[in-house]
Design a protein around this nucleic acid. Structure first.
Lengths: 137, 137
DNA sequence: TTCTATGCAAATTATTTGCAGCACT
DNA sequence: AGTGCTGCAAATAATTTGCATAGAA
């Protein structure tokens, strides 16, 4: 397991306290609610008595995104959420009632998307698929 | 072809000038660039010398959305776009270079989504699929 | 008349930027 | 010393809201 320091260096980012702290927060969230807003991260920093400005949180998250360390998503919530980028691509399922986010992948859908783009004379660069679901009762 | 008046009444909305004008703008755009931002609509109203406030544009578009007259989309542009709701559902393909928006539907993807939700114990209520593409050269 | 709709300005929310100071090389 | 990084406040951008007034039923 690589240290935060190495991850930052590899990403070409200078190792600074705010970056380490923010990266750690994202890693801690990696298991549970993977998706944090800038505000969420900021609040966690405050809780931990780490004095980092909200502007820095935004700057760092953006840098992480550029570096490929995190993915940014825009669900229909009005603000972006960030998650530590696992190598493999995945899509999301959001529960309308609880806000819970479930990740999934489906090769057949992936393949189909590529076909559709091709058919229209385009190359698929990226995509965003979000299923809005409700628990069955 | 129903008049704007009827459409508004059916939607349970009082027939007022701003609503008629905005509905007409959306209808005019229905063929070409179907997807307009609130700002786009506002500018078209100004061009037509129709004195409608931007706040009203937002209010009316939101009402139209609630009434099912228009669909609101959040691509990765930072602002919402609206389009006259055609009965049938469709997804979008956005060209990264030109911003062009192409609509499409694919039954196999639709079906697959339902399956995936089911498999996780959920019911699919809605979904959003956007392909980000680039013209092949 | 009675209630809803609108305009305009002010308020909010999410995010970005300018700038002076600090940190690391 | 030089360049990058940060905090804070101010600046933006998109959208919403309060309120007094105009307009529809």
């Amino acid at each position: 397991m690589r240290s935060e320091n190495e991850e930052l260096k590899t990403a070409g980012l200078k190792v600074t306290l705010p970056r380490i702290r923010i990266l750690r927060i994202l890693e801690e969230a990696a298991t549970g609610a993977r998706h944090l807003s800038a505000e969420d991260v900021y609040k966690k920093l405050l809780e931990a008595e780490d004095d980092v400005g909200l502007a820095t949180v935004y700057r760092v998250l953006t840098q992480f995104e550029t570096a490929g360390l995190v993915d940014r998503h825009n669900f229909e919530t009005g603000h972006s959420v960030f998650e530590l980028s696992k190598g493999a691509h995945h899509d999301h399922m959001v529960c309308i009632d609880t806000g819970e986010v479930i990740e999934f992948t489906d090769d057949s859908i992936e393949a189909r998307q590529r076909e559709i783009a091709e058919r229209h004379g385009y190359e698929l660069e990226d995509h965003s698929l979000v299923l809005y679901v409700r628990k069955k009762r």
